[in-house]
């Protein structure tokens, strides 16, 4: 069994009010390290057997079609060891 991870993030130029709100909450709790915060989504997809190039291509296609909206979001697909 392998796990394929798709990370989805808003494109850098798209306003992220949720990330901004989290970024504003951190210093209130004493965490002063953050210059900025952006919030995204992570999908964990389990498959039987090893992840083949063909399966990864299908996940890539699914990410482009459904998991992410390419108008406002970027995504990456990787196999988690």
């Amino acid at each position: 069994m392998a796990k394929i991870v798709v990370d989805v993030m808003l494109k850098p130029e798209i306003l992220d009010p949720q990330g901004t709100a989290v970024g504003a909450a951190l210093p209130r709790l004493g965490f002063t390290f953050a210059k900025s915060v952006r919030q995204g989504k992570r999908f964990e997809i389990e498959i039987d057997g090893e992840a083949t190039a063909e399966q990864l291509a299908q996940v890539e296609k699914a990410a482009e079609t459904l998991l992410a909206n390419p108008v406002i979001e970027n995504f990456t697909v990787r196999v988690e060891k």
């Binding site: 009010p17 949720q18 709100a21 108008v71 406002i72």
Partner: peptide, 17 residues
């Protein structure tokens, strides 16, 4: 309509949340 690509762009979270 935006998700279906019948119209361009996307609707995102209101800027004040």
């Amino acid at each position: 309509l935006c998700e279906a690509h019948l119209l361009p762009g996307a609707l995102t979270r209101n800027h004040e949340l």
